[in-house]
Amino acid sequence: MASSGGSLLTFVVRRLLITVLLLFLISLGVYSLILIIPGDPAVALAGGAKATPAEIAKITAQLHLNEGFFAQYWHWFKAALGGNLGNSLFNHETVASGIAARFPVTLSVAVGGMIVAILLGLPAGIASGLHQGKPRDRLVTVGSSVAVAIPDFWLAMILVIVFAVKLGWLPALGYTPFSQSPTEWFRDLLLPWLALGIGGSAVIARQVRGALIDTLDQDYMRTAVAKGLHPRVVVGKHALKNALSPAVTVVGIQFGYLLGGTLIIEQIFSLPGLGTYIIQAINDKDIPEIQGVVLVVATAFVLINLVVDIVYAYLNPKVRLT
């Protein structure tokens, strides 16, 4: 039987290798987006029917469209590895610098939303799971059922109506960089965080509740009571560590939904993040920009899930064997 220490390392290395492979597949997928465009991409990208031959030729050369697909991809991939995601077709900036300017905004919205989701969802799920059938459990189950059904961008609008329009407590839109004024940054992002986090918290609360109820029914919980442990230890140590490890994976998946939600929410609060950037790029059919954003967002998502899986394996020694 393998001892547990070594196998965590094996697990991490294995997981890293899989991630590298996955990132490669993702880059291939992202690049193949160009294939979806109906018709000749060069014509479409240059503006369709009204494009001049010179424009078409320029785009063809810029994107290596006259070469085979894999050759095109290879050009793009090599450059991307070096941090060069190409140039925007319409803006006079590189895609990399465009993303670099906006990514921090999107990341702070998504991470803040995640923190709200955890801060609300975790205690609610634990309280509900420990007191199954009691009024507070009803409150959490009913509340979370409603919360998962709310479209987050609609919630954002309602929050704006109430807290910005009616009450005037918080700004309805705009963004102040953290470096300029941390308090303004916080006030600008509070409503977006809440709008994103409430739906996420409902998913987390439900997951934690279910896992906790399952865990409490396990044989080893009876063992813990039979050992004469204090209920605080029985629940706080023996139940929670087992119940929370599946919740960790939900946090990882949830982060993907939050990233997507962020893109919409940014429109509502006029936040200069990747959301506004990609919507503009989509309207312009600016393929290098779209590819760049999707690649960066997907990579962030994959890396978050890598961390989540490692934390999960740390919490749950059995996982490391598989």
């Binding site: 996955l22 597949l25 993702i26 997928g29 987006l33 979806i36 465009i37 982060f255 993907g256 939904y257 990233l259 997507g260 939600g261 893109l263 919409i264 990609i278 989509i282 059919k285 779209i290 954003v293 999707v294 967002v297 997907a298 998502f301 994959v302 899930n305």
Partner: peptide, 18 residues
Amino acid sequence: DALFSFPPLVLALTVAAL
């Protein structure tokens, strides 16, 4: 797994847009 690695809305948005 590769499809799953794209945040869902981002994937839908991009594909639909193109």
